[in-house]
Design a protein around this nucleic acid. Structure first.
Lengths: 209, 209
DNA sequence: GCGTTAAAACTTACGCCGCTAGTTTATGCC
DNA sequence: GGCATAAACTAGCGGCGTAAGTTTTAACGC
């Protein structure tokens, strides 16, 4: 086959297939040949649309970050905005955990990342936080959100009770995997609540830097 | 060369070389052949000491986690213990950021991870926190620590001012990279402080679950 | 001391990887 | 209609993890 009447590939189709493959089987399972096969095409044809594999992975990361709702800041109190944004971001990353390590590199290099930084930082500045503190708060929220999405804490413990025999306090750690939803979501919710309420306390006391 | 009088390789030498290579050039740069060359040996010889590459990477992760100081909890108030442990953990990960994505998988599967979980969870339980809350707090601290180590927030912004023209609040974002130490460390310190003081408040009010 | 077994290096090779180069053919513009 | 470009193709390079089998040496039981 040479050039077809209707192009078989588009950047969007490629990104969607790559995203699905990463979600389903992980970053390491994505290869150019497998992705091409999924799209009904030979491997090197992908290079007519993206220069490198890294560009494809980057486009997937961009498409994920773009799903985060940053409109929540408009007209809202900074506390409410922060809380809603964090929940949206968390939900998006929880739906696509395998791409999270990629998001860690260069949050301010992808368009969607810049738009998000603008919204978050702008809301904090407008609320009266100092530039330095607004930066810290933005980075800190990011730490909590990506850290919690990087991998399930609860699922990191094996379900075999034998393994915990030598650790007196961990004798029920084998039950964690069964309740991983409650554990992981509970920890994130606690963290978000603690951070925002204590920031709010400082704010109300006039400590804004 | 066949079997030498003195073994050229040991598991420890392999792990040390792999760790150095990951620190210097990143996870992706570690290959069995390159690692073997570094050790003065042919690629497949490594398989006499480790069954797979993943086992080597796992051993590197274990050796990194083992550097975290978990003795800080003995005899200390839970707040002080938590703070010192978090700082130690943070310092270790900051020194070895490239291995962080590996640490995310299975914190409760490596011996050093279990020993750490035992120490942290035990200290919280002994202080009177409920089992569920102690688990949440442990997971939450982990989120903050790994999240902050996953990648520099400040270095994620390019130093080219042109890129921020469309984002009114980010007009000084190009300066972030130059102050990345203060930004990243400041954000982590703020997060640690906010979490522990607000947990402490709850604790003192008798809310321990 | 000697024969056997196991350890630790080696060489070779398989299938997969990202990617380059060159080819073919259809499309769309002058 | 001629022609540059786009989008598919095939062939192939060097590197990857790792399996298989070989060789030499060390360690151990008689």
């Amino acid at each position: 086959m040479a050039r077809p009447r209707q192009a078989l590939l588009t950047r969007q189709r490629i990104v969607e297939a790559a995203s699905a493959m990463i979600d389903a089987e992980g970053l390491a399972a994505l290869s150019m040949r497998r992705l091409a096969t999924e799209l009904g095409v030979q491997g090197p044809s992908l290079y007519n649309h993206f220069a490198t594999k890294a560009e494809i992975v980057d486009a997937v990361a961009e498409s994920v970050v773009a799903q985060v709702d940053v409109d929540v800041f408009t007209g809202a109190d900074w506390r409410d905005g922060l809380r809603l944004w964090a929940k949206s971001y968390h939900a998006v990353l929880t739906a696509h955990p395998n791409i999270v390590p990629v998001l860690a590199t260069g949050p301010g290099r992808r368009p969607a990342g810049l738009a998000m930084a603008e919204a978050v930082y702008g809301a904090l500045i407008d609320a009266g936080w100092s530039r330095a503190r607004a930066t810290h708060i933005g980075a800190l929220m990011r730490y909590l959100i990506t850290g919690s999405a990087l991998g399930s804490f609860a699922l990191g413990f094996a379900a075999d009770p034998e393994l915990y025999a030598r650790y007196p306090h961990l004798h029920r750690a084998h039950e964690l995997a069964a309740h991983h939803d409650e554990v992981d979501e509970g920890a994130f919710a606690l963290g978000l609540d603690l951070l925002i309420t204590s920031l709010s306390d400082r704010y109300d006391q006039g400590v804004r830097r």
